[in-house]
Each structure stands twice: as structure tokens, then as C-alpha cells.
């Protein structure tokens, strides 16, 4: 059960890092598990420098700026922290679908019960034109532009 929980946390939290760590190819040495705590101790070794290309890729995906020495150090620490999960032995453990996997998915009948609250919703918007939300130009999705 403990292993499953960690597995789940790993799956939901570290999508981006997975792709990253395969690229950077970290080496992790696992020390013998302590019989008392069952907590594996991991010493990250030779994480190596993170290349400019990797940083640019991550920045684009995460919409986050890593462009300072401090930020890079923080990122490296985060990766080292996350890498400890790799030490957990999950062989033969079936991953959970969800923490709610044994619950019934409630089905709603197809009735209109919400909506008509544009005025209320638009109050949340920084800027409004007529009844539209206004977003900064940003990236366009040409396949989804109203004519």
C-alpha cells in the first residue's frame, strides 16, 4: 500500500520531470534500505549541468522562467528530490487508476440547471469587451478561432 501511494504521487506530480530525467540521464545509487524505517536513502550522483536547450524546453512547457543561477539551482534540487522516488521498488505492484478507483462515478441526468450568469463570471475578468473575456494575445490556436 505504501508503495502504491508513492507510485501515485509520482505519477501525478512528475510528468514533466520524467521526460526531463530521461534526457539528462541521472544516475542514482540506492543504499540498503534501513530495516527500521523502510525508507530508502538516495544519493543523487553526477546530476551534471543542465543544458540551455533543456532549460528552454522546460520553460516553454511550464511557462516558467528558469533564467537565473538561483532558479537553476532550485530546479536541480527539485530534480534530486524527485529522483528519490526512483529508489522505490514497485515491481509487481499494480498501479492504481485513481484514489477513487473503487467508487461509483455518479451520473447526472441531462437537464439544464446552470448557466445564465455571464455578468457574475465576467466580474472575475481583469478586462471585458461586451460579454467577452479579454485574454492577452499570447499563443493563438488557429484551429480553434471563431470566424
Amino acid at each position: 500500500m505504501w508503495a502504491r501511494a508513492v507510485w501515485l504521487a509520482f505519477r501525478s506530480g512528475l510528468g514533466g520531470c520524467q521526460a526531463f530525467s530521461t534526457k539528462a540521464n541521472f544516475q542514482v545509487k540506492v543504499e540498503q534500505t534501513s530495516p527500521v524505517t523502510h525508507a530508502p536513502r538516495v544519493i543523487p550522483q553526477g546530476s551534471g549541468p543542465i543544458t540551455v536547450e533543456v532549460i528552454e524546453h522546460l520553460e516553454r512547457l511550464a511557462l516558467v522562467d528558469f533564467g537565473s543561477r538561483e532558479a537553476v539551482a532550485r530546479l536541480e534540487k527539485a530534480i534530486a528530490f524527485a529522483d528519490r522516488l526512483r529508489a522505490v521498488d514497485t515491481d509487481g505492484v499494480e498501479p492504481m487508476e485513481s484514489v477513487l478507483e473503487d467508487r461509483c462515478l455518479y451520473l447526472r441526468s441531462d437537464k439544464v440547471a446552470e448557466g445564465n450568469c455571464a455578468e457574475e463570471l465576467l466580474q472575475n475578468s481583469h478586462q471585458v469587451v461586451e460579454e467577452y473575456f479579454v485574454a492577452p494575445p499570447g499563443i493563438k490556436n488557429p484551429s480553434n478561432t471563431a470566424e
Binding site: 446552470e114 448557466g115 445564465n116 450568469c117 455571464a118 463570471l121 461586451e130 460579454e131 467577452y132 473575456f133
Partner: peptide, 8 residues
């Protein structure tokens, strides 16, 4: 009308 068919 825009944003009239929107729930929270």
C-alpha cells in the same frame, strides 16, 4: 449571447 451558457 457570448458566455451566457457557462457554469462556474
Amino acid at each position: 449571447p457570448p458566455n451566457s451558457l457557462v457554469s462556474f
